[in-house]
Computed example of a mutant assay.
Amino acid sequence: MSRIMIVVLSLYSFGSHVAIADSSDGIKPWLERMAVASTELSYKGRFIYNRNDDTSLMEIVHVAGENGSRERIVSLSGEDQELIRDQEGKVYLMNVGPPLLIDKGMRDIPLAVRLNDNLGRLLEHYCFELEKMDRVAGRKSQVISIMPIDNNRYSYRLWVDVETAFIIRSELSNEMGDVIEHIMFSDIELRKKPTDSMLEAVLYDEELVVANGNGSKAPLENANKHKGLWNVTGAPLGFRQTDSQDNVSLGTKKSVAYLMASDGLASVSVYIEPLKNAKNVLKGASRSGALSVYGRIVEDHQVTVVGEVPPVVVKRIGDAVIRSKMSQRQ
């Protein structure tokens, strides 16, 4: 359940279409409004999340701010869990006693911002279409479809609130056209300025935080050990390396290298760590619902690639991971 909730935190028959695949003129005003809404609106609501035939009901409070957003998300069905994500992207489990840091995370770039900022690049890989209007949670919505021009990425369908340009419903479909992830708000309160109750909902006592499951908030040893030593070469299938930083395997003290590759919309994470146990080796590609995973061994290191993309993409990216010559001499 925690993994599903973290994925949600990282987000966020209709007749004839108005195709604009060859021009951004029609879609650009919508994307500009959506980008503003995703960074400036605060909201509280309940939504249904369906993935891998598992349906969950959740409640979210999102407070926007100049230095980043803060969120609290509570599961209302299934396992009882409550998470808070702070302005730095760190995720805390809140219903087990003191706030427990379960994901070091990083600041996410909202989906709407990625679409707006990367439109020129995205038009190389996707077709954008405006569909007819629909209604979600009693609100008039413009449906926008984002269809890939090849089989190397998934398609998206977004329901955008006409009044505020907030994404109120979304669908993710695989390369076969099957819907593999669906998020839909059943009710929502949108505000330009957060209420006092919204602000209170995202607060927690930083002095009580327990990090990495070991009661310490201190940085782990060798935290910078791997930085800059690994890279994704080229731009396999249009996915370029966009980030390189240190990360920490959850629940352990070992540091791992972390890379990210993106086509401007979809993102793929790469984790590299020293191979210490030959019995726990991940090799080859697999898929579970929207998520594809690929593993290979490079110079006694386990390379693990994870992303909501077809298996061929994680394999191509994983096969493009190399260790720098400088690191090999160390």
Rank of each mutant, 00 (worst) to 15 (best):
P274I: 04
S216F: 09
H62V: 05
L119F: 06
E207V: 09
Q330H: 12
I183D: 03
A266R: 03
L83G: 00
W230T: 05
A137I: 08
K254T: 14
G26F: 04
E189L: 15
G215V: 08
I109A: 11
T304A: 13
L282W: 08
R107Q: 14
H301T: 06
M198L: 12
R191S: 09
A278R: 15
R72T: 03
S324P: 08
L130H: 01
G138C: 10
T242A: 11
N231G: 11
H17N: 15
R153F: 00
A257I: 01
V96C: 10
G138R: 02
Y154L: 05
W230R: 02
A35N: 04
E181H: 06
S77M: 14
H226N: 14
Y271A: 06
L282H: 08
S286M: 15
V305F: 00
N152L: 12
L172R: 00
N224S: 15
I109F: 07
G26M: 09
N116M: 11
V18E: 15
V248T: 14
S13V: 07
S69P: 03
E221I: 12
R114H: 12
E59N: 14
S75D: 03
L41T: 04
I317F: 00
S269W: 11
P110W: 10
L111T: 13
E124I: 02
I4K: 13
D134L: 04
L172W: 00
F185D: 05
R85Q: 08
R114E: 09
L220Q: 10
F166H: 01
C127Y: 01
T195N: 02
Q241W: 02
A64F: 00
M1Y: 09
I146M: 07
K225A: 10
G238Q: 00
E40G: 00
G120T: 12
K276N: 13
V36I: 14
V210N: 07
